[in-house]
Design a protein around this nucleic acid. Structure first.
Lengths: 307, 307
DNA sequence: CGTTATTACGTAGATCGTAAGAATA
DNA sequence: TATTCTTACGATCTACGTAATAACG
């Protein structure tokens, strides 16, 4: 059953005339005649009654024509859908985001995606990097955006760095430490709320501070939900330790202010895109990654610490 | 979009191995490789990631594979349906039957059709020959079985005679005329009930009787519903004038008996199959016509007048 | 080095267009 | 005789298999 043949069938069914039907399918008239004959031979049924100057479908012809019309419609839909898919206007995309990138980038990127690609089904998994890595290997997500400092030596993962983003300590405006220079030691009395940090980051930070014990950072609340962390910092004197991008809006409206820590360590995060080595990404995934890159760049500009 | 190509796609998607997939679609491995490449070129998307010894669909591949699977299923269904249609196991059939053939043949033929071809949708139009001819020309029915004496000269109709069937006069057992020889003249007092007869038949019958006026046959009830005619003859002294085949069962069970008319004219009907000249019939239609022919023959045997 | 996918190349089959033929009005 | 479908024939294009090549473990 060849689709081209079936399209010849439909042309003849519509035109009821070999000459015109042949023209319609860009074929010579004898070629169309042969094509129809081949179909009749294939089905073992006469499909058209030809009385000179009068071509009409037989009952068997009507039967086949009706079904062929549906099949060809479906075939054309498939081609159209594939074109739309290539144009990122159809399909589905699942990707992951770490807590910080989610708070910093996704509030811009996801609404934009919904506007630009309304027919693409999205699944955005916000989770910590361990879960995201497992999800990626299980191919439940195509890629994820997260802190990439855990994935240095992994050769089966393709890691694209989007650069470092600085972090800081943030408190509510009425906080006792607000508005003046503070030392790291002073933070201990209030405790720090932050996301679940990779071990490497904790150790590195401690080392930067010149402290050998893990207790160097007085973390009193570990939670991957940045919105929840903000609520805690906004309603208590707990100190929020996150990247600047995650609280840009809160600082703008005055809900939070940054502490001016004089001996502040090189507290930062390195954001990157992680995908499986050697696996192609969908057009939409590539598009989202570009959007994330672009968003990172634009955030970077306005992301310098403000006191 | 070629269906063969898509079947190659599915084979590779299932086997995840060019060699095995090629074997499955009866192709050499390089040929399959080219076929997939052609599809990738056509869609503009890489469809499989090939790492030596590991072939896996890309997201674009998954997208296409899923849809291709549905399309190929539909294509195979079409082929299967067409085969079933040719084998008279699928489709629909509309045909017409005159009142007499309906009463004589269809009670055998239609149940048999339902048993042998359960998946074929039937429409049986029982009507008089004028309506049936119009329905045939409108192509609302493929053919009809009726008295063909009206269709002698029609060249655009294809008429297949099934032979003559004799008619007679029938009454209820308690009828005053029952059980003895009667003359045509005696019928007049009770009146005859019959179907709407063609003018030619009326005239011919009158001529056979040697009477010149149309009033020769004292028809008091004209109706195309044979069952209704029978009810009238069974509950009144009205005389039923129909073909023998239409009342075979009623005579067998003693509901009606035939009048022994001594000067009975050559009262008969000529049954035939009428279809459009030069128009092919569906396989099922041909099958039904054969069944009607066979039924006519078997009825003919037991159809000799009994007194 | 063995396995597996791709590229090269010559061939067989399908399909095409032009031209000639047959049928019908 | 004009129109329309079919058959004949030569050309072209596609898809195939075999063989050689390349990539990877």
């Amino acid at each position: 059953m060849d689709l081209k043949r079936l399209s010849h069938l439909l042309a003849l069914a519509d035109e009821r005339h070999f000459g015109r039907a042949a023209e319609r399918v860009h074929l010579s008239q004898p070629a169309l005649s042969r094509s129809i004959q081949a179909l009749e031979s294939e089905t073992g049924q006469r499909l058209f009654d030809r009385d000179t100057g009068d071509v009409r479908p037989t009952p068997a012809g009507e039967f086949l024509i009706e079904r062929a019309r549906r099949l060809l419609f479906d075939a054309r839909s498939l081609e159209r859908d594939m074109a739309l898919y290539s144009d990122r206007q159809l399909g589905s995309l699942a990707f992951g985001v770490g807590p910080f990138p989610a708070a910093m980038l996704m509030h811009q990127v996801v609404p934009r995606l919904r506007l630009d690609h309304p027919a693409v089904t999205l699944r955005v998994e916000v989770n910590n990097w361990q879960i995201l890595e497992a999800r990626l290997r299980a191919e439940a997500i195509e890629f994820f955006v997260a802190d990439i400092r855990n994935f240095t030596a992994e050769s089966d993962l393709l890691i694209r760095s989007l650069g470092q983003v600085s972090a800081g300590f943030f408190v509510r405006p009425e906080h006792p430490l607000a508005g003046r220079q503070v030392s790291m030691g002073e933070l201990e009395g209030y405790g720090i709320a932050t996301t679940r940090l990779p071990e490497v980051v904790k150790l590195e930070t401690a080392r930067t501070l010149g402290i050998s014990t893990r207790q160097a950072l007085p973390i009193v609340l570990e939670c991957d939900d940045v919105a929840l962390l903000k609520t805690v910092a906004g309603s208590t004197d707990t100190i929020l330790g996150v990247i600047h991008g995650a609280v840009a809006e809160d600082i703008r409206v005055g809900r939070l202010i940054e502490l001016h820590v004089v001996d502040r360590p090189g507290f930062h995060s390195e954001i990157g895109v992680v995908s499986l080595q050697g696996r192609s990404l969908s057009p939409t995934a590539l598009c989202v990654i570009e959007a994330v890159v672009g968003e990172m760049q634009s955030v970077h500009v306005e992301q310098s610490p403000r006191f």
